[in-house]
Write a protein that binds this DNA or RNA. Sequence first.
DNA 1: ACAATAGTGTCTATGAGACATTATTGC
DNA 2: GCAATAATGTCTCATAGACACTATTGT
Lengths: 261, 261
Amino acid sequence: MPTERDAVMRNSGASTTYDPQAFPPFAVTVDVVVMLVRDEQLQVLLVQRGSEPSEFEGMWALPGGFKRPAETLGEAAQRELAEETGIVLPPGALRQVGAYGDPGRDPRMDVVSVGYLAAVPELGDVTAGTDAVEAQLWPASPATRPKLAFDHGKILDDVLELVRSEAERGPLPTEFLPRTFTLTELRQVYDAIWQAKLDPGNFHRQFTSDPGGWLIETRHLAPPLSGRGRPAMSYRRSARWKTGAPISRPRQKPSSRSTTG
Amino acid sequence: MPTERDAVMRNSGASTTYDPQAFPPFAVTVDVVVMLVRDEQLQVLLVQRGSEPSEFEGMWALPGGFKRPAETLGEAAQRELAEETGIVLPPGALRQVGAYGDPGRDPRMDVVSVGYLAAVPELGDVTAGTDAVEAQLWPASPATRPKLAFDHGKILDDVLELVRSEAERGPLPTEFLPRTFTLTELRQVYDAIWQAKLDPGNFHRQFTSDPGGWLIETRHLAPPLSGRGRPAMSYRRSARWKTGAPISRPRQKPSSRSTTG
DNA sequence: ACAATAGTGTCTATGAGACATTATTGC
DNA sequence: GCAATAATGTCTCATAGACACTATTGT
């Protein structure tokens, strides 16, 4: 919190001009990670930058922009996302990831950015904003995505870890699905998040073991995605599902490692 | 991230003056939650504010202050804590909690604050800073702590949830202890965090079940705290302990509730 | 019938938790 | 010996996981 003793310098640190109302001015921005599951993997919406900071001209980046004084950080994230990509999120769809304020992260100015995550079932029309040359989905994995401008690669890495971790302790994975969904669809979300192939039978039993605890059974059957096969029961997320999950991250991927020395 | 289209208003929103370099200026501050375990409960270091914002005159608050452009958010937190309380933290002792930027959270200016947590074994000399009237420990629980200035109550609530959650998935509890410690001391930390009374025998077995996995056995015995009883083996945290924990939060406290409908 | 998907049953191994028992110290 | 604390042993119950089997659809 501001204290007069520290309210000193307009020019980083060295100045000794004392002014109780002065403080080092920062730009505060929000960056939004819009994530979804497609082709069995997590994908993220990126925008291609215009020519603005020459260091990052034409590079891909997270959509985002300046916070305004009269809005909350979350409201800023929602507004900026809509302005830059045309995507309108339902309230509560955003969760904060963290704040990023390393010196020099933006060569143009002193800026602190707050990252947000929006897990969505799918994207409607994506209309690239005025300054964004283009907006499209990319695989979220560091191995398959382009190099990102600013420190957005770090933000996205943090988001990936957050998603994988949250999947073990909350209903975040259901946010990747529409209001009602089948257990197979939900399992595919977990598979994408953890890059796993969870057992369908065990998965079904785990999520239905506490009726009403994790999921609510709708009385409606959903046809199988491939056209063939038995129709599946449709579920929606339970309001009681705040913390905990009936499932945990598999210990290791299909590579045989026993590094328990 | 800043984009010229959004770099408009100096007066929240309505202005249409276009200036590619302008942005709404914010103060960026850091607030530090210094937490420790004492008297079987989590306690937090608070400072009593001077007369600065009259709304919060004499109230208790988290130590903190302005970020400078040339330092990271974490460095700012470390520096501000030292300036206001005299506490010097080892590197890596701080972890970010979140960013807080609701309009009006500080009546004096537009400010976005980033919260940090430092879990420490104990406090050295606490010397109240120039603007802080006093600095002392308070119980961290909402029921027993004073009402805090600004939105610091919300920040502290978030920290408490973070601590309780992190205890289930990482070595954070060991940060409340010195470099070496006994299993009884570690168990008492978990007890304080979760307000539980974990079984000593089971606790011991869980943390020693994977030798070198969670803890490293030093070859040194520590005398019992009360003077009597068998001396305990001393341990230090394993470098391998990054994620996961051999223990999980007890389902419910000693009140008989079976609300699993 | 057959393929494909949904859902259930069964068995096993692991681990948490309750609780008793042994070990090591000071008085 | 006795009190106090540390550490281990034992038992039970719940559950994750592997995997077989049944159920329901379309072709």
